[in-house]
Nucleic acid binder design. Sequence first.
DNA 1: AGTAGTTATTATAATTATTATCAAATTATT
DNA 2: AATAATTTGATAATAATTATAATAACTACT
Lengths: 150, 150
Amino acid sequence: MEQRIERIKKQLHSQSYKLTPQREATVRVLLEHEEDHLSAEDVYMLVKEKSPEIGLATVYRTLELLNELKVVDKINFGDGVSRYDLRQEGAAHFHHHLVCIECGSVDEIQEDLLEEVEKVVEKEWNFYIKDHRLTFHGICYRCRDEKTSE
Amino acid sequence: MEQRIERIKKQLHSQSYKLTPQREATVRVLLEHEEDHLSAEDVYMLVKEKSPEIGLATVYRTLELLNELKVVDKINFGDGVSRYDLRQEGAAHFHHHLVCIECGSVDEIQEDLLEEVEKVVEKEWNFYIKDHRLTFHGICYRCRDEKTSE
DNA sequence: AGTAGTTATTATAATTATTATCAAATTATT
DNA sequence: AATAATTTGATAATAATTATAATAACTACT
């Protein structure tokens, strides 16, 4: 945890940004909820628990900044809010998501899976891929299990 | 065009919805701009040209309805607005997109490309895939050509 | 054709997420 | 310590979308 914060601090410094207490508090919340997909409002609420004086605008600004630095990825699952997802350290690409249409859960797939597809797209469409977003909508293993045991 | 409207009409009727003049005007705009990725506001403006009496709320409701019927897919490219994209008739899955970070263009990929990936996801993650969203962000062939000719 | 009942529409108000503004606070620099 | 630059917090503004309520259009039945 501390090492990751240290590395994020260096990343900020390299672009002449500072890791202010507010930014650090926000990063800590993101690290503590790595498996979740928090909205700005969610992050705000959680940061407030430890740092009640923080303002909502600061959280938005910090998330925007972290997005620029590619520390987090901003993603939208179609429910009208942007969500912020920590990128795996050193990951070249954003990971994928499984959104369950029954229970609303969001699971992550860290495996690339798209290497071949991207080769085809780069070649056939002459498109230089910098990033991607891949989300599957369907029924997760938990909901499937429930159904078979009914 | 007329045949497609006729088929959409039937789809509506099969769920006991009607193809009102406003709904028809909206569908016509979508068909006439099949290659575009219009926001609700865009659609509203275009429908107004032919049917100036239509209300914005009706456009929203119609788009929502068409989305339910899987006539259009709602998609968000991260710019804060939902866009509505006609699904190819009879297409099992939503098509993919190439978003250019230089010029903002959005191109479509009709090929499936994900068959193998989806097999892996279904098997390895025990996730029953009903739909997907795949978008690549990068530099389109037009912007690449510009650069090499500079 | 006439009435009752349903469905859809319009105009507008309300809501929600996000961004902009600006004075005050903090931090860095001389 | 004084000055300059950056960041923050509170709040106002904006933008997209949804809710509301009165009206209009259509349907079914007599």
